[in-house]
Amino acid sequence: MATELPVLTAQDFASDQDVRWCPGCGDYSILAQMKKIMPSLGIPREQIVFISGIGCSSRFPYYMNTYGMHSIHGRAPAFATGLKIARPDLHVWVITGDGDGLSIGGNHLMHAIRRNVDINVILFNNRIYGLTKGQYSPTSPLGKVTKSTPMGSVDFPLHPLSVAIGCEATFVARTIDVNIQHLGVVLRRAAEHKGVSFVEVYQNCNVFNDGAWEYASDKKVRDDNVLELEHGKPLIFGKNRDKGIRLNGTTPEVVDLNNGVKEDDLVFHDEKAEEPTLAYLLSRMRHPEFPEPIGVFRAVDRTTYEAEVNHQTEVAREKKGEGDLAALFSTGDTWTVE
């Protein structure tokens, strides 16, 4: 049944609560873009649920005029999975961070992704623990000096997208808090994908880790350090769009297009590739050796978890009819006492 949807604006998605992030935090930009894309999705506000864990990013649901749950540390994907199984009609977002999603909640993130639950997971990666005031996180670079690592961290960091791809994600993307146009496009693509969508957002914590993504966000240098992925297009980057990525065996290399290398020699992006090999390779390209790709790494179709669960319920009902208590109670052998 087609119903006339009221025309909503970004303002309609703002809750009545004061936003309490630090002034200058990258989270503001993500919140603004989220509110901005919401009306264009054509989904009524009451059908949308934002679920978060614990951390700065996880305050996000309080600021959206939708349904929301600010849960416990690291577990948001598990709440979202239960909700989505029970209510496949709802449009469910998970807001998490590098600590919440990859440290304490790594297990839940992994399983929500491999099950392909139709939820949108947005991971705000600021490479630091903000809410607990500045300890290193699973994405902090090796040697990071923080309050808990005065001599530098000795932990090798994780690459969030490599993790997601390893978990069989069907939609993987990366974007940057200050690149608002790109951010909006990626969020919308994530919302439209059927199945789990995993988006890493480079987000600046201007208090505890200011400038962590400067190479990727600063207009003066970012074109040389970031490669914008486009499906079916060659991997080209640089201020003058004169550099590309070519494969040497299974190893990517940066080539100069001014030196006789043709576009056809470059890697062409294929977000729909069934095997995630290319997406994984792209997720391993790190600054400063390589430009870091942003955009959609992978977007493939696969049946969703909650659809399969609910399909089994339907099949069982077709086979056995709607459950009948009297029949249930008489399962097996019974006897009567007169």
Partner: peptide
């Protein structure tokens, strides 16, 4: 946690 999510959804 999944059960709490389902409870929020009305199960």
């Amino acid at each position: 946690c999944s059960a709490i999510g389902a409870a929020f959804g009305g199960s």
